[in-house]
């Protein structure tokens, strides 16, 4: 349904804009990597998934986590470092997760989610389920060895796994065209899996490709690879704004903004429909922010909690 797709994309967009403000106001510590411009990828892929399917995400993970169904207010609470956060204020932006929804985490390490998703895909099949797993990663990850190791394993074991490459043209400042020899889908094809290239600014095109790949995986026919050509409209992370890295031009950014995935979809809907959804999202986010701000901060006495499932707490840093 277009309204569902639009609602999700709009939620991601406004969530990220909200997050930028909160980072700049020092309400969120550290840096976050915004998904602004790439919303169609997470939204289109997750629209093809079931609740019991598993995803692993990246440093730029908020979009995947929202699209897979996490509670937005608990995400904001996490980013604000509150105990009501999804990860009880232990994870923050780069590790945000909801394992109960099959979200095995954003990840601070490029390509690290690939083998984790492969293990989850294998486990689903072992359990007699037709559930699938999806690994999201950027163009930068296609030059990581572990991604290739995982593609090979997924191929030989015919794992129900989707490799979703979000090619936004850059890994921080380094252009994908400079970093990558040969084509991205050509590499995937070498591991003997269907590999397609889609317009990552068109959520319905992404969804269609994902549905094909998911059906292939559920049928027991193994992994697929989808390269989504997309673009991030803002810096690599919230701190880039002050860095003047100069690796791309304003004209290039403007050219891509014309293909804003929200606009591409909105043009297929009525203005009233869009306006109603926009209002709905504003209310959701306002409520989420209020919830996060009112939530308690963690007790410092609990700083060594949650490291181990059993056994003694980690030792303290001062002598007894």
């Amino acid at each position: 349904m277009r309204s569902d797709l639009y609602r999700t994309m709009r939620t991601i967009r406004r969530f990220e804009e909200q997050v930028v403000e909160l980072v700049n106001a020092n309400e969120i510590a550290g840096v976050t990597h915004e998904y602004i411009g790439q919303e169609a990828v997470a939204t289109g892929v997750c629209a093809a998934l079931r609740p019991d399917d598993v995803i692993t995400s990246t440093h730029r993970g908020h979009g995947h986590v929202i699209a897979k169904g996490a509670e937005v207010r608990r995400m904001l609470a996490e980013l604000l470092g509150r105990t009501t956060g999804l990860n009880r204020a232990r994870g923050g932006s780069m590790h945000i997760a909801d394992v109960s929804l099959g979200i095995y985490g954003a990840n601070g390490i490029v390509a690290a989610g690939a083998p984790i998703a492969a293990g989850a895909a294998w486990a689903g099949r072992e359990a007699g389920s037709d559930r699938v797993a999806v690994v999201f990663f950027g163009d930068g990850a296609v030059n990581q060895g572990v991604l290739h190791e995982t593609m090979n394993m997924a191929g030989i074991w015919k794992l129900p796994l989707l490799f979703v490459c979000e090619n936004n043209g850059y890994a921080v400042s380094f252009a994908a065209s400079e970093a990558t020899s040969g084509s991205i889908v050509g590499r995937a094809a070498a591991y003997d899996m269907p590999a397609v290239h889609v317009d990552g600014m068109d959520v319905e095109a992404v969804q269609a490709a994902a549905e094909t790949a998911v059906a292939h995986a559920r049928a027991g026919d193994g992994p697929s690879f989808i390269e989504c050509e997309t673009y991030r409209f803002v810096g690599h992370h919230t701190a880039e704004r002050t860095m003047k890295l100069g690796y791309r031009t304003d004209e290039e950014i403007e050219r891509w903004r014309e293909r804003d995935p929200l606009r591409v979809l909105a043009e297929r809907m009525t203005p009233d429909e869009v306006a109603a959804l926009d209002g709905e999202v504003e209310r959701l986010l306002a409520e989420a922010l209020a919830f996060a701000r009112e939530s308690p901060r963690p007790a410092v006495a609990d700083a060594r909690e949650y490291v181990y499932a059993s056994g003694p707490l980690p030792r303290e840093g001062v002598s007894a």
Partner: peptide, 15 residues
């Protein structure tokens, strides 16, 4: 493929 099969084990453990 040590990196991949070690990460794979973690994914299977989570599942």
């Amino acid at each position: 493929s040590e990196q991949a099969f070690t990460g794979f084990a973690m994914g299977a453990a989570l599942a």
